[in-house]
Nucleic acid binder design. Structure first.
Lengths: 225, 225
DNA sequence: TATTAAATGATAGCATTACTATCATATATA
DNA sequence: TATATATGATAGTAATGCTATCATTTAATA
């Protein structure tokens, strides 16, 4: 039996549900590949259509524009990651141990998950690193936020914040520390690979170093109390 | 006597030096206003030209494209900020005190500096918060980096890293901590104002809270050693 | 002051992007 | 077999992202 992990997506993110048809799934799959390969700025629906072997109009039946598609992909990723986290920290009692595993999951290149054949999580992880923040760094944040487009991200952040508070009930900035961990897990990775002098990981370029850094950052903050 | 602060800019960032002419200065001034007002995505050279009262072709004589202009503005800001920092931490002996002042400078909305009439630092600070990371989150990072476009940012980061090491010579991640401080000074600000549930500052929405958070984050990391 | 160079203005044009609309055809479902 | 539904094919339009040309103004310099 093959398990199918279905992530419930916000319906306002798409015009037609891409998970409901073959073309829709192709759109998701190929958009991840294309954005990964050439970046979000040069990515167009025309190129995507050519890549798939359909027409531009075909894509527009699913997504209003490429920004919505990016939000969709990031939202999907955060939803998927929260599932991964709850799966991998299940049965673990110690909140500090939970937090450590979360940091590891955030900072580790994921391997492609067979359960979702149309979305390559490994490439998606790279997209989150390079393009993820562009989903919300816009003038429409407020509007998009009202439509709950960032709920998966906020949920994940809230969940991590709660675990931080379990580790250290008196710590004053659980939510900010949570968003810092998430963002830095990705930014330090981007810096390590592209602007290495902004990090201390330029020589080995290993994710384990980012994990060590984040653990140090988090647990000294929490231990002192 | 009015002091003129001149920041030496990388010549590969522009076609014609915008600081060398009236139109050039107008381009800088109005681009900051326009990007601040409607965001980088919807910003075009056509709109900028109309705003200034010149033509599109006129703008293209100064900047190759809007991405170069964004890099120019961010580079200028980092250069300006490093000057502010060296100015405000001058004569201070204690590295911890230096670091505190730096954090404050990073996280505080600046007031417009009369010395540079064509660039509004206050708006520029807001642009850095919302658009700054888009300067390097592209597929051309490597290429742009080779041309030293990010030198001011890297210099600032390096300078902060050195002070961190002075505070705590054995601390293992001075550069990553420095880039974390810089990025988080801005991201926590953006979150506070746009996605407040990602922070612990949603009620008061005051910069002082971000400063407190960063101080806590940094000095617990450094103290324990 | 005349001469020349540099900067700007005005206009045109072209390929790509970002869509929207329409009609035909294939495919599933009732 | 009728009928939705999804896709394909094609067209078209406004805006974007440029490049090129020539005229005119302004500034430098001889």
């Amino acid at each position: 039996m093959k398990l199918q992990l279905q992530i419930k997506m916000n319906e306002a993110l798409f015009i037609r549900n891409p998970e409901s048809s073959e073309l829709g799934k192709k759109i998701l799959k190929h958009s991840v590949q294309l954005i990964y390969k050439s970046g979000f700025e040069t990515f167009t629906f025309k190129k995507l259509a050519e890549d798939i072997g359909t027409t531009e109009a075909g894509i527009y039946r699913y997504f209003e524009n490429k920004h919505k598609l990016l939000i969709y992909l990031t939202a999907w990723y955060w939803g998927w990651l929260e599932f991964q986290i709850s799966f991998h920290t299940n049965n673990i009692k110690k909140p500090t141990e939970k937090l450590k595993r979360i940091i590891k999951l955030l900072a580790t290149a994921v391997e492609d998950d067979e359960k979702t054949s149309y979305l390559n999580e490994s490439l998606l992880h790279q997209i989150i690193i390079s393009e993820g923040s562009k989903a919300y760094l816009t003038k429409q944040v407020e509007e998009d936020n009202k439509k709950h487009f960032f709920k998966p991200y906020k949920d994940l952040c809230a969940a991590i914040g709660i675990i931080i508070s379990e580790c250290s009930p008196k710590y004053k900035y659980p939510k900010s520390l949570a968003s810092t961990i998430i963002e830095m897990a990705h930014f330090q990775n981007f810096f390590m690979n592209n602007l290495p002098s902004l990090t201390d990981f330029g020589n080995k370029k290993e994710e384990s170093e980012i994990i060590d850094f984040l653990n140090d950052l988090v647990f000294t903050s929490l231990k002192k109390i």
